[in-house]
């Protein structure tokens, strides 16, 4: 159950696994295994979510209202009965943006001290 009138800032900083799941769902709805694959592909295999971590995060993110489970299914030939599909919620998008902003600020602070590549 989502908390009443949540503020995106209240959930920051976001656990890395949650952030990655939001990124994976940003462009399309995916089922669990597809999320794991997408995260692994984007991080070059550096982050391999385990099933437990994935679904524990999913459960929490559902409760927080970051994502929703969708009932519409792809065409039956691509579908597996067991699969459940997830979609990023508008609140999830807002939180992902806020987290990205937070990370950007951090990086620019690091840059100002010469701890990160790029222009000061």
């Amino acid at each position: 159950m989502p908390d009443s009138t949540p503020q995106p800032g209240a959930l920051l900083p976001l656990p890395p696994s949650s952030f990655h799941i939001l990124l994976a769902l940003a462009d399309e709805d995916r089922h669990g295994y597809a999320i794991i694959q997408d995260v692994a592909a984007r991080t070059g295999g550096a982050l391999k979510l385990s099933a437990g971590t994935l679904y524990r995060s999913i459960q929490r993110m559902l409760e927080q209202g970051l994502i929703v489970e969708i009932l519409e299914r792809p065409a039956p030939e691509f579908d597996d009965e067991r699969r459940r599909y997830y979609r990023i919620a508008p609140f999830g998008t807002a939180v992902a943006r806020a987290e990205a902003r937070r990370l950007t600020q951090l990086v620019s602070m690091a840059r100002a001290r010469g701890l990160a590549p790029g222009r000061a």
Binding site: H31, G32, Y33, I36, A51, G52, L54, Y55, R56, I58, Q59, D80, R82, R83, R84
Partner: peptide, 13 residues
């Protein structure tokens, strides 16, 4: 939790 996600976790494993 098991009832909700158990099947999918099995599939992934």
């Amino acid at each position: 939790f098991r009832a909700e996600y158990g099947e999918e976790m099995c599939a992934i494993f």
